[in-house]
Design a protein around this nucleic acid. Structure first.
Length: 586
DNA sequence: GCCGTTTTCGGCCCGACTGTTTTCAGTCG
């Protein structure tokens, strides 16, 4: 069982937790924390890199010592440093750190003074009123902690981006209506278009903060107020999501927007850069001594640091700052760049609308093309199409085409990739189509080797054009299947296959990291809605966000190309050899 | 524990809010 980067990250995070509780050098703990984040987001599997090349790549924040510790984890699956630290504390003590309001100092006090070892121990101590007697704790702490612990026992969650957007909308409307308000922006990970968000961060600019905070905390959708000051407040909505509000003067809008958009790591890197230049940066502006020298716009903040403007989706401290110091960042893809959608369903299988209705919606969006890609026969529960039904659907498309002069309706299929890598329709059927989208809908638990071989084989089929939702994950519901993505990408380039960025809010598959990896490997992507109704074309917005997080430009996208170029790509040259045999069966 | 073209030692991001404190530590984002 190969060690994943996430395993290394988890171990480093645990070391950091324990170092903090122990009261060790805080910068040492931070070093582990930083390394955990960087390694956890590292694009290539470090275990594989090490076995192939004999050394680890140069990873920022990983020096000689942590390099050695990563090697130890890769070879043994454990870290002796962590094991030793664990001996000093009860095994579940660090779980307490996940409770809002509890940090390392308090957790340590609970342990040393009351012998509390885990969350249920804390719960008992709270109910016995033992906590309120501790130095630094009073009845208010007790009351808050009881709520937090009980909420924690009821499990916290993250929200899909599209879900968070629904909760944000009425609040933006509410605050925009307060007299004197200039700007209302949902910042934080929402603005960075992360696939899930833990809470919503609202930034409001006005000269008169009080009525804004007042309106916010008294809104009918608020279930409880966690904190409320003159310029800052936190609430939990009845939907369960936490919303943090910050009110700032208009002159600080840009600096505040940078600050509250994050990410945390990006902000820390910016402030370091500011220090090097003798500047100080905070949410009010950029300062030289006591003079504010920038801050009204985001551009001004970046400019004074010697950086070109960095789009929110790139602000993860994954090289965007170094790149912005050298010149403009890539012009990331935008929704209007898309010239069509290459993955959509109709009533022929599990869609809710006719081909005609889907085509009308596509035309109304001004697209040049729309591919109809219903399921193949293997998916019996949705009445997947066999050769005869596919032919009939093709005839319907032929009849509709004259009605849509500006829109090319493409005949396609979302064909199942069977367990052995064959496609779920005969070659003859596939040859009659404009494009073939292939997807895995079964046997998710194959080994990494078998799953990879299965998909590589399918991609060898001469009609295979797009690999749909390449890892099969459903956010919060189903883990991705195990896959050697690098081999898939290299095969895709070799076989002229595009990979999909499925824009459905539950999928967003590929991830941002894989998007960037695909770009590095020279593989084209297609941002597709997988729409089952015309309204779901709107989901493309989330796919675009995901692609932007992966540094994707219009030139990296198959469906940002004009029709002629798209068709050229789809009509790829037949391969000279078919080393793994015909993939389509009879 | 990391890092460095002012540095291989001595730094390491910054401010608001809370609760308990009587001047501030801890936590959070």
């Amino acid at each position: 069982m190969a060690v994943q980067n996430a395993d290394i990250a988890r171990i480093f995070d645990q070391v950091a937790d324990l170092l903090e509780v122990r009261g060790d050098n805080p910068f040492r703990a931070r070093a582990y924390r930083n390394a955990a984040r960087t390694v956890g987001e590292w694009g290539e599997n470090l275990s594989e890199v090490l076995s192939k090349t004999g050394h680890l790549p140069r990873i920022p924040g990983v020096g000689t010592d942590l390099d050695g510790k990563i090697r130890e984890i890769l070879s043994t699956g454990r870290l002796s440093t962590l094991e030793k630290l664990r001996e000093e504390f009860p095994p579940h003590l660090t779980e307490l750190l996940s409770i809002p309001g509890l940090g390392p100092k308090k957790v340590r006090a609970f342990y040393e003074e009351l012998g509390i070892q885990d969350i249920s121990g804390l719960h008992r101590a709270l109910l016995d009123h033992r906590i309120a007697g501790l130095r630094g704790f009073g009845p208010r702490s007790e009351e808050r902690l009881i709520k937090s612990v009980e909420a924690r026992l009821a499990k916290v969650r993250r929200y899909k981006l599209a879900t968070a957007a629904q909760y944000a909308r009425p609040l933006v409307t509410l605050l925009t209506g307060v007299r004197g308000v200039r700007e209302v922006v949902v910042a934080g990970s929402f603005r960075r278009r992360k696939e899930t968000v833990g809470d919503l961060d609202l930034l409001v600019t006005t000269e008169d903060p009080e009525p804004v905070v007042g309106r916010f905390v008294s809104w009918e959708g608020v279930e409880r107020v966690l904190a409320s000051g003159s310029t800052k407040a936190s609430v939990v909505l009845s939907s369960g999501i936490q919303v943090d509000l910050r009110v700032m003067p208009p002159a600080s809008f840009g600096a505040a927007l940078v600050y509250f958009t994050g990410s945390r790591a990006h902000n820390i890197a910016l402030r370091r850069l500011a220090q090097d230049r003798g500047l100080k940066i905070n949410e009010y502006g950029v300062f030289r001594g006591k003079n504010r020298v920038a801050g009204e716009t985001e551009e001004s903040v970046y400019r004074i640091l010697g950086l070109s403007m960095i789009p929110p989706e790139l602000r993860e401290d994954r090289g965007e700052i170094q790149r912005a110091a050298r010149g403009p960042l890539p012009a990331l893809v935008t929704l209007p760049d898309l010239k069509g959608d290459l993955h959509a369903h109709t009533r022929w299988t599990d869609g809710h609308n006719s081909v005609r209705e889907m085509a009308e919606a596509a035309r109304d969006r001004g697209w040049s093309y729309l591919a109809i890609t219903d399921h193949s026969r293997r998916l019996t529960m949705v009445h997947g199409l066999g050769p005869a039904e596919l032919r009939e659907q093709g005839e319907e498309i032929d009849r509709l085409r004259p009605l849509f002069p500006g829109l090319s309706l493409l005949k396609g299929i979302e064909v199942d990739i069977l367990e052995d890598g064959q496609l779920d329709l005969p070659d003859q059927s596939l040859l009659s189509l404009d494009l073939v989208v292939g997807a895995v809908h079964s046997k998710f638990s194959l080994s990494r080797a078998d799953q990879t071989t299965r998909i590589l084989r399918a991609m060898d089929h001469p009609r295979f054009n797009i690999l749909a939702h390449p890892t099969g994950r459903l956010i919060g519901e189903r883990e991705p299947y195990d896959l050697d993505m690098l081999r898939v990408l290299r095969k895709a380039r070799e076989r002229q296959v595009a990979l999909e960025v499925n824009a459905h809010p539950e999928r967003l598959d590929l991830t941002d990291v894989y998007c960037r990896m695909a770009k590095d490997e020279g593989v084209l992507l297609a941002i597709n809605s997988d729409a089952h109704a015309p309204g779901e074309f709107d989901n493309l917005e989330w796919g675009v966000g995901q692609a932007r997080r992966g540094w994707i430009e219009a030139s990296d996208l198959l469906n940002a190309r004009p029709l002629g170029e798209l068709l050229d790509f789809l009509r790829k040259k037949p391969s000279k050899t078919r080393p793994e045999g015909p993939a389509g069966s009879g």
